[in-house]
Design a protein around this nucleic acid. Structure first.
Lengths: 240, 240
DNA sequence: TCAAAAGTGTTCTTATTACACCCATGG
DNA sequence: CCATGGGTGTAATAAGAACACTTTTGA
C-alpha cells in the first residue's frame, strides 16, 4: 500500500447529541447499539458521512432518520479524532447537537430506532466509543449558547409559561452538585428571571392561560422570532 | 468499488490559523502555495493527518514544522467539510488556531516556509480553498475567548506594558469598520481598562520600566499564571 | 522647552441581587 | 377551605461608562 493510499484508509462520521426537555430534566436521545463494537451499549446516534454529502447534511440525515424531524436547530461543535477512538479503524467524528421539542418526537421511523430512548443528561451511564466526552462537550456548548442566543425556545412547545421557561434554564444551567459545593447551586430567582426575560420584549403575551391545572393557571407566551431577528439586525444581542 | 470502500476514498487534514501581534495589528501567518491546486495563492498552513496521528498532534506538527515552536497555545475550532471544498477529492479539514509571540518566530525551518509571511488579519486577501471562511471562524472564536480567558498574554512578550496589553485587546476586538458605523468602534478607555485589568490581581508589577523610549517609560508587568490557575481552582472566571 | 506617551479619580448611570406576600384555581 | 403554584415591587449594591489633566522622559 502506498503512503498516499494509507491516508485514505480512514472514514469520518457525524454523531448527534439530540437534546430535549420534558418539563423537569434536560434529556438526550440515545440509541442502544445492536451490533459490535459496543453491542448493547448506549451511544449517540450517528453514521458515516456519505462521500458526496456535506457534514451538516449528514447530521440532518441522522437526525431525520431517527426522529422524522427536519428543520430543527442543529449546530456543529467540534471534531473528535483520537487515533484509537474507534476499534475497527481510523474514524474521526464530527459532533453536532440539536434541540427538538420532545413532544414532536413520538414514533420511531428508522429501523434502528426501536431502541432509542431519552436519558436525563445528569444520569447518563457509560456510553460507547468516546461518546461521554462528546456529550460533555456538547453540553458545555449548549450551556454557553443558551445564555447568548434564544435557542432555549427550541426545546419548548410554541406556547409556554414563564415557569416552564425558567425550569428549562435551570435544567440546562444548574450543574447537579458542584464538587465542593462552593458556588451555591440554587435555582434562579423567579422575580428577577421574569423581569429580565420580559424586558427583552421578545415574548408575546398570548392572553391565554393554562388549562386543566389544579392551581391558578399561568399565562402563555410565545417567542417572537421575527422581532428577535429584527433586533439582531439593529445590533441587539441576547443575553440572559 | 464497493460502497464500503467508497467511504474510505477520503482524507482529512488540519489547517492552522496562527495568530501573532506586532504591537499594532493582529496578524496571521500564511504560506504561499508552491503547487497546484491554488498555486501561488496564500493559504493557511496545513497538512493531511497521518493515519496514526491524533488531530491535536497533527496541528502541533504543522505548527512546529512552520515555526519551530512547541508548547504554544493551540485550540481546535471546528471541522469544515463541504463536498467541493477541495478540488482534488473529498478532504475535510479540522481548523485550529494558535497564539504565538511574534518575536519567537524568526527563522523558517521547514522547506515550504520560505514563502511564509505575516498578514494583518484586517487586510487578508482571497485565500486558497475555503480558508477565508476558516480564518473568519477562528477570528470569531479568538474574539470570544480572549475576553473569557487570559489567552491574550500568549501573544505578548513575557514583560509588557499596560498600553501594549490594551493595544492587543483593541487589535483583536475592534472590527475595522462596522457596516453601518452603528456601534461606535472607538478604542477602549485607558483608565477603565487599567482599573479592570489590575483589579484581577493577575499582573505582577516587575518594578522595571521600558528602556530606550523617547518619552516617559512605562512600567513592565508579567502575567502571573500560577496565581490564575489557583484562582480558577477556587471558582474564579476571567472576564475582561 | 517641546513632543509623546504614562499615569491617575470621581461621578453618573445601569445592571444585578436579595427578598416575602397575596392571588387564582381545582379538588 | 386548603393545597398548589402564579404573580408582583422595591431597596441596596455592584459594575460599567464617561471624562481631562499632570507627570516623566528623551530629543
Amino acid at each position: 500500500m502506498s503512503e498516499v493510499e494509507s491516508f485514505f484508509k480512514s472514514a469520518f462520521s457525524v454523531d448527534n447529541v439530540i437534546f430535549g426537555f420534558d418539563g423537569g430534566d434536560l434529556k438526550v436521545l440515545l440509541i442502544q447499539r445492536g451490533a459490535a463494537p459496543y453491542k448493547g451499549k448506549w451511544a449517540l446516534p450517528g453514521d458515516l458521512v456519505y462521500p458526496n454529502e456535506d457534514l451538516d447534511t449528514a447530521a440532518e440525515r441522522v437526525l431525520e432518520q431517527l426522529t422524522g424531524l427536519r428543520g430543527v436547530y442543529l449546530e456543529q461543535v467540534k471534531a473528535f479524532g483520537a487515533v484509537d477512538r474507534h476499534p475497527l479503524g481510523r474514524v474521526i467524528t464530527i459532533a453536532y447537537f440539536s434541540l427538538i421539542k420532545i413532544s414532536d418526537y413520538t414514533v420511531t421511523p428508522a429501523s434502528f430506532a426501536q431502541s432509542a430512548k431519552w436519558h436525563a443528561v445528569n444520569k447518563v451511564v457509560e456510553l460507547a466509543f468516546d461518546h461521554n466526552e462528546i456529550l460533555d462537550s456538547c453540553l458545555r456548548r449548549l450551556r454557553r449558547k443558551v445564555r447568548m442566543t434564544p435557542i432555549g425556545f427550541e426545546l419548548l412547545p410554541p406556547k409556554f409559561t414563564l415557569t416552564e421557561l425558567q425550569h428549562l434554564y435551570e435544567a440546562i444551567l444548574i450543574q447537579p452538585k458542584d464538587k465542593k459545593g462552593k458556588n451555591g447551586n440554587k435555582g434562579i430567582d423567579k422575580r428577577n428571571f421574569r423581569k429580565k426575560i420580559l424586558s427583552t420584549n421578545l415574548l408575546h403575551d398570548l392572553n391565554e392561560v393554562q388549562e386543566g391545572v389544579a392551581h391558578r393557571p399561568a399565562k402563555l407566551y410565545q417567542f417572537d422570532r421575527s422581532k428577535y431577528e429584527q433586533l439582531v439586525a439593529e445590533g441587539y444581542s441576547f443575553d440572559i
